[in-house]
Simulated assay, not measured.
Amino acid sequence: MTCFLCLQCGVQFTATETPPQHCPICEDERQFVRWEGQAWTTPQELAIGHRLVMRDDAGGLGFGIEPRFAIGQRAQLVQTQHGNVLWDCIPMVSDEAVAEINRRGGLAAIAISHCHFYSAMGKWSDAFGGVPIYLHADDRQWIMRPHPSIVSWQGETLAINPSLTLIRCGGHFAGSQVLHWRREGGNALLTGDTVQVTPTRRHVSFMYSYPNQIPLNATAVRRIAAALEPFDFDDIRGAWWDLNIIGGGKNSFATSVARYLAAIA
């Protein structure tokens, strides 16, 4: 029995003797099936040609896979005095990464923006004794590997600890969530690609489907803006290496919302 990984999106599936026939995440219009057809790999096969890398990203520890695998997102360790949280996830876990997180105080929880980044969340949780994985209940249908540590929370906000609050924004997916980090020296917003930092690193944008280039409608964007209005933040940390807005994040967000709505009007 093997927990196969989809070669296109990197999401891990529940254990089976043979690879699944379909990946519902890739068959959804927000993603796509490989031109060569659906394909799978295993954690063991992935480790042969890839490695987990750790490096500083805007003053925090990030985790990625080299060479690039699947969607190519990186995870981030959010360190607080109330416990550390892994934001978003990647399809590979290593002894070195576990040791480094433990050296920094261990892991209290995992939280993931949306299903494209669920990857090997169960394996990451197991590596730290079964820490809770916070996913919004509106995205429950996209869980391909059920795990006892998954917490399907409901509502609009959830305080993981006194420093960290999950905010359901919707938009990209019904349960798409971001993480607000209240900290000394300036609050931060970790957004996955619910709020996508653009290459200028001065603006953000929004999409229903990134690979298929389907924009998000005005109602959904206004809802995201309303969900984030009560929260102050200086930095916005995106889903990929170095895609961060450092300083002036709240103003950049507001400017970007106005610019986006004008563009699709």
Rank of each mutant, 00 (worst) to 15 (best):
A226T: 09
H116N: 14
A137T: 13
L216H: 06
F117S: 14
R201A: 08
K123N: 13
R145M: 12
N217I: 07
C115M: 12
V204Y: 00
F117K: 08
L166F: 05
V197Q: 01
A111T: 14
T198W: 05
S149C: 06
A220K: 08
R222W: 01
S113I: 04
M207L: 12
G171N: 03
A239R: 03
V204D: 00
A137N: 14
V195K: 02
P146C: 08
W240D: 13
D193E: 11
A218E: 14
T194H: 04
V221F: 06
L135E: 02
R223A: 09
R145I: 00
F206R: 02
N212R: 10
L158A: 05
A174I: 00
P146I: 12
A220C: 13
L158Y: 08
L190H: 09
F233I: 00
Q141F: 12
T198V: 09
S149P: 07
C169I: 13
T219C: 10
T200K: 15
C115A: 15
I160N: 00
R182F: 13
S125R: 04
S209I: 02
L189T: 00
S149E: 03
G129K: 10
S113Y: 02
A159L: 14
T165Y: 09
I236P: 05
A188C: 03
A111F: 08
T219K: 12
D234A: 11
N187K: 10
P146Y: 15
E184M: 10
